[in-house]
Design a protein around this nucleic acid. Structure first.
Lengths: 156, 156
DNA sequence: GTTGACCTTCCCAAGTTAGGAAGGTGCAGA
DNA sequence: TCTGCACCTTCCTAACTTGGGAAGGTCAAC
């Protein structure tokens, strides 16, 4: 089958299939006389594997490792599980981080009237910084936000 | 003060200060005779504002808007609050998404012995896909994971 | 004068996905 | 056979934020 059909069957766009081939994530596809890429069921299977791993937030680098384990008869489930647990930890860390940012902002928003006047605790919070001289009992910026803006979800 | 001191005072790296200037996020700094950038307290104040907004996950585009509101005496707190609430919604959506991915993966991990044998439900889950023919009572892939890999945390 | 810290501008990189240009191929119907 | 259309090829560009480094100018202290 051509790349278009393989794309539809695997859920990976043709663009991405070509890209994955170019970076060596998946092996170079056979070519037809025309130069068109030729795919078989096994190729689609592998592409679907990649797709699902992406859907679970694995980076391409980690998917590379997963594909290696997938095709390695002498792998141990311990290796796979370790990789998965590491990934889970990172996912939850990022989720927590995002939720913390949302919580801080919600705290500021609750204090904001949201009316026609310019006075706004949200602006004030951004302006005055994480540690205003007089602050409420619950610190609005409780954690070290130093590197707060660092994380990307899928491509850190 | 020079850019280095402004950087230390605001928490924004010199690299980033130059970049923010180049994209017009902050006004062009005055130059000394040497060509060095010259910063005053007001500039540091603005850079700190940007820094805190970044720490709360605002994109540079949104920070541009925030800076506009900040400096606009005729702003309404309603405008600010609306922007904040939109941002909170997005943050929480992304956090939820990440947590969902983690949950799915944790479900697979719990079923994995993690021993020396190759048999591994995690690999099987990736291989067999979101809807295996016979599946446990609790679907391991309950949500439409179609666009699961789309979100970036801070620069979507 | 020399050293070392600091500054300047400019180019390149990360990660993943997508859009488009310019041109070749394959197949159907008129 | 010709035309049209869908599909394919490769290559370039973009998004977003941050940082690394090169090559060279400036400033202060010694």
């Amino acid at each position: 089958m051509n790349i278009g059909e393989a794309s539809r069957a695997s859920g990976v766009s043709a663009k991405m299939i070509r890209h994955y081939e170019s970076i060596g994530l998946v092996p170079r596809a056979d070519r037809q006389d025309s130069g068109y890429r030729e795919y078989g069921p096994e190729d689609v299977h592998r592409l679907s594997f990649v797709r699902r791993a992406r859907d679970l937030g694995f980076s391409l680098d980690r998917i590379r490792v997963l594909l290696g384990l997938w095709g390695d008869p002498s792998r141990t489930s311990a290796e796979v599980k370790a990789l998965a647990l590491t990934h889970i930890k990172e996912l939850e860390e990022k989720a927590r981080h995002l939720q913390e940012m949302a919580d801080v902002l919600r705290g500021l928003s609750l204090a904001c009237d949201g009316d026609g006047r310019p006075d706004c605790p949200i602006i004030a919070g951004l302006e005055a910084g994480p540690r205003p001289s007089s602050r409420p009992s619950r610190d609005l910026f409780p954690m070290p936000v130093d590197q707060a803006a660092k994380g990307k979800v899928l491509a850190p």
